[in-house]
Amino acid sequence: MAIEPTALIQSILAGVFVGAIYSLVSAGLTLIWGTMRIVNFAHGALMMLGMYMAYWTWYFLGLDPLLSALVIFPTFFALGYAIDKFLLRRIIQASSVAQLLITFGLTLFIQNVVLYFWRSDIRLVTTSYSSLYWHAGGLVFDAPHVIAFFAAILCGIGLHLFLTRSSIGLAIRATAQDREAAQTVGIETKRIFGMTFGLGTALAAVAGAIITSYYPVNPDSGNQFLFLAFVVVVLGSLGNYLGALVGGLIIGVVQSTTGYVYLAQAELPLAFVVFLAILIFMPEGLFGKRLRR
């Protein structure tokens, strides 16, 4: 099969679009890992809950998913904070097996609650721009992907500003780097854990919400993203949110272009090969030495 330049560009762009979503999901995951040292298996399920909230606010109130994302962010921040306060705070010092079990258990709980109330049927959100396409130089862009992409980029920039400009953002990064030293300068790390989990959860939920304009919502929706997010988190150096933001785009593009130029079935294995290669040759990830201790 001949490779057509426009199609190649189109598939690279598609990779960037979906990659921006991976970035957001992964940034939340990596923040939680970096700060709390918890591998949050519930991240995908929380993302899926965000998708459902976007769906239902659209269904009942006619609210566009992008608008509902503005409500979803604080709602899921609060939810994440509560999960930390009532569940994780008890196990933050526990073995990683206990942590794994509790986040995994949380996943099953959320999925089954969703299944119970809303069954597993997929649900589609239809917006005024669902069938809006733009044509430019042989390329076709659909409004839902483009809008979700820009929303994701905005969130990414917002996250960066928050973590570099605000006191809480800086305190989160300080806690991630050295819990004890952070306490020494007066940072109440317990509260920071809550904030971090809230922030990570909100990012996942918003990522879920903004893709509902084109991605079918169902109780398993988060899982496809979670798997790739783990790859991105390792690729982007565990705990490094900038690495995750860039890594998400890289995985998106790798996945999409290998799907086009090579074999479609290669795309996931290839993302996995990249993942393994990085683990073997660059155990610290692409973006430096985060994990000294």
Binding site: A14, V18, S256, E267
Partner: peptide, 22 residues
Amino acid sequence: SNITFHGPATDVTSQVLQLKSA
């Protein structure tokens, strides 16, 4: 064209572009 993709997928653009070329 004879394409096997990983399902459920997050994005199917590249497969559709392959089909489009074929």
